[in-house]
């Protein structure tokens, strides 16, 4: 069935709720309202108010309560309305969700999936366009996933719900309703921790994820360049092997991401390439990313976010280096 990302995620949540009574959804406006992006539309009517829970407005409370539910054997899926409000839940994620398994040597675990919309491009107010994937990846103990389309979104989410770990599931707002894909009605999983080679090529490797996958694909198609596109899908833990295999084959690497350039996923990927594939490189590794500044207000965001022109120019430069 053709689905956009909103319906694919809704479908995954529906399956998860149907599969197990341990699964509960909680968050601000997730029930009656179906969420501000309508991702949880219809689920409260179907599964009841005690399984799709409209909570008080408190991100740390939502996340901390979800951690408690998980410790007690439920499998909560909290929604934080926007990633920009998730800083209020940061302490719970870093100090507790990420650490329970480690601090108790596996005797207490936090199986849960925290969903939140990320990224810009929808002309939203301040705090509604954040790209915090690296903040959660740096800690250790949290799995961080960011799908680039409806098929992966459903499969990765179902995989996340079946794991016994805390997963931060980042949903690019811009892609929510951008396009439709063929998505099976039944349950299926997409492996977490495994990158997806979207296009095989030999001239250069473009490593990307989330919102930047579409513009990268468009540019490669338009320019008819023989690029290999690697959608890493899982930010943490990184699928280093797939990245290195691609770079060793092409000899040229570019990392494209929407988050600020400095200390970003690009730095991590570039460092691993430098450590393990330097002598196979024919050109320096290149990063195309947002500028190293707080995400701007909507009138400025098109000046900040990497677009097809910037990606295209970078490809030309990398190929001529």
């Amino acid at each position: 069935m053709q689905m956009n990302m909103v319906s694919a995620i809704n479908n995954a949540l529906d399956i998860a709720l149907r599969e197990s009574n341990d699964v509960v959804l909680l968050g601000e406006d997730v029930g009656k309202d179906g969420g501000v992006f309508r991702v949880t539309e219809g689920l409260q009517a179907k599964y009841g108010e005690d399984r799709v829970i409209d909570t008080p407005l408190a991100e740390s409370g939502i996340t901390g309560t979800a951690i408690g539910m998980a410790l007690a054997g439920l499998h909560p899926i909290p929604e934080i309305q926007f990633a920009g409000f998730m800083y209020l839940a940061f302490d719970q994620l870093v100090s507790h969700a990420a650490r329970f398994r480690s601090r108790t040597r596996g005797t207490l675990t936090v199986p849960m999936v925290v969903r939140t919309p990320v990224g810009g491009g929808v002309r939203a107010l301040e705090h509604h366009s954040e790209n915090p994937e690296v903040l959660y990846s740096h800690i250790g103990g949290l799995i961080v996933v960011e799908p680039s389309g409806p098929y992966d979104a459903k499969g990765l989410l179902l995989r996340a719900v079946h794991m016994q770990d805390p997963v931060v599931f980042l949903e690019p707002t811009r892609i929510y309703r951008l396009f439709r894909e063929e998505v099976p009605d039944d349950a299926y999983e997409v492996e977490i921790g495994k990158a997806n080679v979207l296009r095989s090529g030999s001239a250069l490797s473009i490593i990307t994820y989330g919102t930047m996958v579409q513009p990268v694909k468009n540019v490669v198609e338009k320019k008819r360049v023989d690029a290999e596109i690697v959608d890493i899908r899982t930010i943490n833990p990184l699928d280093e092997a797939t990245v290195l295999a691609s770079v060793k084959k092409t000899g040229r690497a570019m990392i494209v991401y929407e988050a600020p350039l400095s200390f970003g996923a690009g730095a991590e990927v570039a460092a691993r390439i430098a450590e393990k594939a330097l002598y196979e490189l024919q050109a320096p590794v290149m990063r195309v990313a947002g500028p190293s500044l707080p995400y701007p207000f909507p009138a400025y965001e098109n000046f900040a976010t990497p677009n097809e022109k910037r990606i295209g120019d970078a490809i030309d430069k990398l190929l001529s280096a």
Partner: peptide, 8 residues
């Protein structure tokens, strides 16, 4: 909050 979640 963990206590609240366990109580839930």
């Amino acid at each position: 909050p963990h206590g609240a979640g366990i109580a839930y």
